[in-house]
Design a protein around this nucleic acid. Sequence first.
RNA 1: GGGCCGGUAGAUCAGCUCGGAAGAUCGCCACGCUUGCAACGUGGAGGUCGCGGGUUCAAAUCCCGCCCGGUCCA
Length: 886
Amino acid sequence: MLEKELNLEYFRKEGFKRYRCGKCGSYFWSVVPRDTCTESPCGEYRFLGEGMFNRKFEIEDMRNFFISFFKERGHTPIKRYPVVARWRDDVFLVNASIYDFQPHVTSGLVDPPANPLVISQPCIRMVDVDSVGKTGRHLTGFEMMAHHAFNYPDRRVYWKEETVAYAIELLEKLGVDREDIVLKEHPWFGGGNAGASFEVIVGGLELATLVFMNLRESPTGNIEIEGVKYEEMPIKIVDTGYGLERFVWVSKGTPTIYEAIYPDMLEKLMNLTGVVKDEKEERVLQLLAYHSPKIEVMGERNFMEFFIKEAGISREYYEKRIVPIQKLYALADFSRSLSFMLTDGIIPSNIQAGYLARLLIRRSLNILYSFGNPISLYELIEMHARRFSDIMDTSMLPIVREEIELEEERYRRTLERGKDIVKRLLKKKRKIDVDDLILLYDSHGLLPDIVKKVAEEQGVEIEIPENFHSLVARKHESAEKRKVKEKKEYPFPPTRTLYYEDPYMKNFTAKVVHVMGRELILDQTAFYPEGGGQPSDRGFVEWDGKRYMVQDVQKYNGVIVHYLDKEADIPTGADIRGEIDWDRRERLMRMHTAEHVLLAACRRVLGKHVWQHGTQKDVMESRFDIAHYRPLSREEVKAIEREAMRIITSCIDVDARFMDRREAEDRYGFVLYEGGVPPGKEIRVVRIDGYDVEACGGTHVRNTGEIGFLKILRTERIQDGVTRIVYSAGISALEKIQEIEDHALTSANLLNVSLDRLDEKVKSLIDERKVLAKELQREKEKRIEILAKEIMSRGSTKLVEIVDLEPKEMQMLMKILSGRMDEIVLIGRDGNIMVWSKEHRARDIAMKVAEAMEGKAGGRGDFAQGKGKREKVQDGFNIAKEVMGL
RNA sequence: GGGCCGGUAGAUCAGCUCGGAAGAUCGCCACGCUUGCAACGUGGAGGUCGCGGGUUCAAAUCCCGCCCGGUCCA
């Protein structure tokens, strides 16, 4: 299939021929005959040392060069998207430039921001995190330079021929000889799409991928790739990806990619840590980068043996001189990824993208700790942010600093607690086995090498299994269950939405489209269906003098279904009258607009990292969850309330209108998607000018002044990094406050104090109560002591006694007597049995007594308890006497 | 979203396997020793065993549900 797809006119014209790699078997195109595809490990890196471009580039120069090159060739440069994919609900982080245009542009629903376009999109890929630093080329963060063209049936931009021509021209302009370029054929698929692609290999390294996306997954498709069926798409998309950092590397020919892209930071880190990189280390590192693609063939362990021999070094030299340098490489990379993630508003936490940020933070901190903390992680992140200030938001730095400091503190605590756990475990078991290691990591976040270090301090040796991480992974293997909400389909045209045309419409008339039992469908309605966290309207419809209550309203693909309280025999085509429960709707509208105001207030008070995480509106109180890195203080809550009230009392118009998705995104950015990502080409945008703009399908008041009043009722941390704000608005808020006031006033009245003295009074009452309880306890003790004295004065060493005491009091008595006597049976008036025996027959006696009292008992030899029927107390007493020979 | 670990005195924890009188250390208070402090000695205060339900004669302990904290993985 590929051969036909990728046999281009361009190749014939320009002298490229198709060959097959003798090593990996893939097909490729080249202007000179070759035995292999040249991509390492089939070939070798040839750019190390001198570089292969006509000059050396820094990241910034390379990015500019690329963008200008395509701009000159008719492409529109567009701004990079955030690394956190706010416009998507299927992925957390942007992995490639095409992510920016999925799903709506690639599906054809929405136009691209420009066509053709050029972009340099920062991406985060966590899959390589373990290889970073070691191989000389892996990164968690990189910029994917790309030119994209979207070809529609009625508008062709460009396709394979032009794409390949651009790539070759770009490389030649950079000074690469055509003889050094290899285009490797490769089937491509991902994210439900597929197509043919070329990998562009220069000097043994893949510099770019040119994908020709023209297929999409379809159960009825006629093209099959790896068992999945695909069909041809109407849109054909040129999806390219040029690795910016790799271009810079190839231009410089440094031993590893890291020297090429972070020269300043690496120099600084070396100075601070005293790690030295001389010619010998340079040579070893370069050799390592050169050979590292072989890891994939040989496996890591075999590769290391091979490499140490090949480089002529000792393992000790490798550990002492090379590994520290590799750690610094990783640190430079991790901190750059973090500066992208955190300035783009990701909040470190234990869920979703936040977890990935925390992972990088902890790995970075580990490295810094191992060098004795020569510099703070924040300083490194700031250094990157300042260097890349043209594509990063440095105004986020104060928040980032606070987040990092909190995370450091948190990690320090986790480690400390972890060390205690290890020490305790050692005290108990004197050893730690594999199961313990897995538990310590999985449940307490302790990496095996930390455990090993602590154990060694305690003088215990620990073996860490080679396949540790796969053992952990095995523990997590479990079938994934996904709930899919059933979607109903109604074969009717979309219902006209009167509630959008006039959100203040209280009653209306409409024609009946369909009636089925209690389901009613109209041609138009003012009833708002449930959606966007706003519950549906209620009210009634009337026909022929009969009234049907509307209990629920739902929307299925544009068709609005009213659920009535009883079966309706209304004929199709009848004219009905509907009326909304206006008090309810008005409260909900105020709540909904108040929510937008609240978000604006939160962003102003807490910072722009605040992102809506979920909401639920209701009539009396509503929930509003935000992503924030720590719980809200009382002062912050008050400040948010003040800011929200300021927005309300400023009486700002609320504008709601349908807009083209592209236009809305261009004008307002991704903050639109705070409340979720709506489908469709047209989206409804609700805007409070100067404060908030969101894609939102709810009903809103015309002006913030109509909200009248907003009150936060309480806040709680529902998850790491997520805080819930429970609030109320309008009349509902007033009623809520009145409710609270009632409670306070009633309490104050009961205590006969004024409201402002309530807290004082309550505190003194609690203290008083404590004192009284203690006195009572002492009285009891006194009584029991007297009783004990009386009993002991009888002079016997054995005792059977019926006492009018509670179990706790019986225990107290027993405690005093047991020191002086040999055998005691106490029977409470309500049937409790308590036995103490010096001769260890308490259990036997208790059981016999209990049996006589038709109850049960048990316990130890010296002390036993039980319970029998209260009317059998005398029988128990007699038996006890008998057993004890009294 | 799923898995795992934890919640007992002001703090750190033991006790939970196998149900039977709530403990240790530090801190706190008082007294003693001392010119004073520290140390030491003696004594003391401090607990809804996260919450709710169940099983049982009996639950910190076993079972179920919830809440809170931590952690690993998508």
